[in-house]
Amino acid sequence: MTPRARREALTGFLLILPWGLGFLAFTAGPMAISLGLSLTKWDILTAPQYVGLANFANLWRDPLFWTALRNTLAYTLLTVPLSLAGSLTLALLLNRRVPAVSVFRALFYLPELMPTVATAIIWTWLLNTHFGLLNYLLSRLGLPPVAWLESTTWALPSLVLMGLWTIGGNRMLIFLAGLQGIPEELHEAAALDGASRGRRLWHVTLPLLSPVIFFNLVLGVIASFQVFTPAYIVTNGGPADSTLVYVLYLYRNGFQYFQMGYAAAMAWVMLVLLLAFTWVQFRLMQRWVYYEGGATPG
């Protein structure tokens, strides 16, 4: 290492020191303990017993584990592409210097601000089979009512719908922030060269936005893999486990079925799955994410 490189490394370490301290003080311990607990049978009320890899073997044989995993994957596969596309479109639409655009941004962001209790009540009403607004609108179109939350077919899509309510929320905001960094000159230069709007979007905007798209993709997958609140409050996993998502099943095992060791095993399986996914994304990223800065991404 050259002295310069050493100085750079030292500065880098100093800069990430706050995270290092916080991680060691508050996160590393609990994570390590949960890893340890995944090797035990622990009912919370009495001392944990070491059981080796039995929890993981039991997971493999637990049909509900697979149900939960399948539901979560389905939710993720539906939610992530739809909400990424929706949020990006919305951000492009609202990234204009036109009158009242800031009002529209605020309106689209509102769902993100509603407290969870209110959101849950609003949605159970909207999706009510007999009195909900959604079925009322369907009936006006001459369509039959849908048992949104009572049918094993529609309950999971209903959760996806609830998730899409916030396409104008945080994800859109992040895209909007990303768009601020794209110099207008590039667009104008491209326009002067006669590039069509579609080509400008494809060749200028999206490449420059790719680091942010990458962020929203990775975080979107992590977040939707951990979806919990709507499944917990609105459907409670039902009907017939059709909305039993991964974290809900984990929560039930940990706090309701007195199987915290099993829950910890589930958590670490999830961690490994998400890490693998993220690692693959970071590999693939190098093909499509363009960092204007030229700095080497990790």
Binding site: A147, S151, G237, P239, A240, Q256, Y257, F258
Partner: peptide
């Protein structure tokens, strides 16, 4: 001691009965 798990298990089956 399996109360919650029992209620959830039964509830999942019953959901299919009511539909």
């Amino acid at each position: 001691t399996h109360w919650a798990e029992m209620v959830d298990t039964l509830g999942s089956e019953m959901d299919l009965v009511w539909t």
